[in-house]
């Protein structure tokens, strides 16, 4: 039997023998990785929302109610010839109202209650993306504001980028919390593995005396940590998927509709691999550290 087979067999027996302490260890790993997985799930969905918003993010150039056709044509011409602009579309007041009614049918009464069409006419500008596009868009925003007939310029991407900055910071904070929890989980795994080593101390002493290679002596401890971590991470994924299913069933359509997302997304293959391999790696590292006690 190879050292790997031997280590897995002995580690499994040791795990079953550890009983409650192994369950505590698996539980702490599961909590740590459920936290990490939760952040990843949130992150995946926030990223989808931001991507959609970013794709839809345009510059809107609103026109005065009394802007003339000549002023509008001049503004349009200016925009079309500007290097930062990919395309323009004129949206009349009537078209803006139609769009709003189509997008938010439940609010149709509000607009009809106002009486007069509250929407201004606007020119929607699709901007080119790439390096320097933000600076060019800023310059364009300033220049077009100065044109006659322009009442206001809204540039969505600027606040979206601020939002992305906040989301990135939140992700880092989430990662930090998950890392602290993982560290705690690693200590618990190491403690459980150490207890197992203590329970097997006679066996380990005999192994040393018969000249067993250190890979055989320490291998089961490392694999035990690896199994604790892997099982904990797998349980975390199961817990997240149950929460996700419940979320989709009870909140899914409302939440997805509220943020403009077609549907909520579960973790992708990469995120699932991150959680599972993370659990295995944290467990194996804790097992390795604990196994160093055998000299």
């Amino acid at each position: 039997m190879t050292v790997v087979g031997y280590s897995f067999e002995e580690a499994w027996v040791s795990l079953l023998r550890s009983g409650r302490s192994a369950l505590v260890s698996i539980g702490t790993i599961a909590i740590a990785f459920a936290t990490l997985g939760g952040f990843l799930l949130l992150s995946v969905n926030v990223q989808h929302v931001l991507d959609q918003w970013l794709q839809a993010a345009e510059m809107s150039v609103y026109l005065h109610e009394d802007a003339t056709d000549a002023e509008r044509a001049e503004v349009e011409q200016f925009l079309k010839s500007h290097p930062a602009v990919a395309g323009v579309e004129y949206v009349s007041r009537e078209r803006a109202l139609e769009r709003f009614s189509a997008d938010f049918p439940e609010l149709r009464d509000v607009t009809s209650g106002v009486g007069e069409n509250p929407f201004p006419s606007a020119i929607e500008v699709r901007l080119k993306t790439g390096a320097g596009s933000d600076a060019a868009a800023d310059a364009l925003s300033r220049e077009v504001s100065a044109h006659a007939g322009v009442s206001d310029v809204r540039y969505d991407r600027r606040w979206l980028q601020r939002l992305m900055g906040i989301v990135t910071t939140a992700r880092l904070a989430g990662g930090l919390v998950a890392a602290i929890l993982m560290l705690g989980a690693a200590f618990t795994v190491a403690a459980v593995v150490r207890l197992s080593l203590y329970a097997r101390r006679d066996e380990l002493e005999i192994m040393k005396l018969v000249g067993a290679p250190f890979s055989y002596i320490r291998g089961p401890a490392i694999v035990e940590g690896l199994l604790l971590g892997g099982i904990g991470a797998a349980l975390a994924l199961i817990a997240i998927s149950i929460l996700y299913s419940a979320g989709v069933r009870y909140l899914g359509s409302d939440l997805a509709g509220f943020v403009g997302l077609g549907q909520l997304h579960f973790l992708g293959a990469l995120e699932i691999a991150m959680v599972l391999l993370g659990g295995v790696a944290v467990g194996a590292a804790a097992g390795t550290i604990a196994s160093r006690a055998v000299r």
């Binding site: 039997m1 190879t2 050292v3 192994m207 018969v210 000249g211 067993a212 290679p213 055989y216 002596i217």
Partner: peptide, 8 residues
């Protein structure tokens, strides 16, 4: 058998 087992 343990002796022989850990010796692979």
């Amino acid at each position: 058998a343990f002796v022989l087992r850990v010796l692979g």
